[in-house]
Write a protein that binds this DNA or RNA. Sequence first.
DNA 1: ATCTTAACGGCACTCCGTGCCACAGGGCAA
DNA 2: TTGCCCTGTGGCACGGAGTGCCGTTAAGAT
Lengths: 229, 229
Amino acid sequence: MTSSTRRGRSPEGRAEVRRELVAAAARLFTERGYDDTTVDDIAAAAGVGRRTFFRYFRGKEDALSPDHERGLSRIAEVFADAHPDEPLLSLALRAAETVFDLYTVDPEVARQRFALVGTVPALRDREAASVHHYRRLFTRELAARLTGRPDGELRAAVTAAALVAAHNQALHRWLADGARDADLPACVDHFRRVAPMLPLEVDAEPDLAEVTRRLERAALALERRSGSR
Amino acid sequence: MTSSTRRGRSPEGRAEVRRELVAAAARLFTERGYDDTTVDDIAAAAGVGRRTFFRYFRGKEDALSPDHERGLSRIAEVFADAHPDEPLLSLALRAAETVFDLYTVDPEVARQRFALVGTVPALRDREAASVHHYRRLFTRELAARLTGRPDGELRAAVTAAALVAAHNQALHRWLADGARDADLPACVDHFRRVAPMLPLEVDAEPDLAEVTRRLERAALALERRSGSR
DNA sequence: ATCTTAACGGCACTCCGTGCCACAGGGCAA
DNA sequence: TTGCCCTGTGGCACGGAGTGCCGTTAAGAT
């Protein structure tokens, strides 16, 4: 069942090799640690040559979270397939929630990755770059739908950043709490609380500042009232 | 003026060596490209040994933006030195604006770095990680000041993300426009437009949703009024 | 059975980053 | 001055990442 069996590719042989590499990488990373695991180790554990590893992944880091590209595609699909009349807030929330699926299909793997990413600096930076790509995609899609609106680009950037931040906060909380399937609804609910904080529905031109000042005064009054009780 | 002059350190010799390394790195990166410049090249251009380079920088990437740590310290200072009664919105804006100083003290260097970061994937990822650190710091400081408030952590995360996003958007726009000193005030003004989008002053307990609905109604009314003119 | 195709393994190479060590040169004390 | 300590330095060697190249080998087509 080693290399000789697999020489030359079989129809689904590539997918199998890939899975074995991912599994070997995850196992070795958690057992020995990321830095103490070489690419040779991973390849050997998967029963392939070192050179082959680099035909499946761009580098050592990619073996841990190989679904990044697919995640970006999924989000792009959500935006592309959306009905043009769907409110932007609804669309944005839906798009962000699709990312949960990618992270929660296999809670055990998610926990493993979470622990690893939290420990190893190199993986932490990679995660940051990955999140950055998601944020960029959201920003682009939102900006395209806010062209011409007042502060369209700024609101797109802010909304995208807020969405991604809220998503990650909810996800990290869920992961740190044990990544139970039963807690997933609460996790998504927590994420949805970001909705009122998004500068999306406030589309009226006149001036945001005036409305905000009014809001501040109201808040101040409410605070005084609640503070005196 | 080469190595023999500098053997053994002089009082400000270390700072001088560091400057020479940074200058050499920036020059070579822009002339030959990042990937075609080796650490040996940089060290040789600065008149030091390869080994010495790694005593001044953690790696090749650090030679381009060596001020990251200092930037984090500056922001931490702003938060630490702030008057406890300063409104959170004011504090957050002040903290974010201090980052501008770091990027705008030398517009020419900033432009150079901007072009490089936009081109080279490795530097792009590094930049993302760097931004991530800023965002984390903001999140932590804001969360500490929002403990106990409704959705405190979430609002801290969202506000931090929004601030950083708005800052970067304004900065990138300024850089892409030519990084003129004269345009700096406009750049900061653009950034400040993020203020009304921050879920910061809505501190009253009752419920965010109710206030938001009110805000929406007000906005709608304003929109109707301005749309009919 | 033969040909074509494509994935594989191995080799060699460059470069990054680090541990180790010998050395140079300034400061200090006798 | 002489000898010693201390610190920054350069050179060397090593391990590991990632890449180009090429011979090999098995699967599928004819």
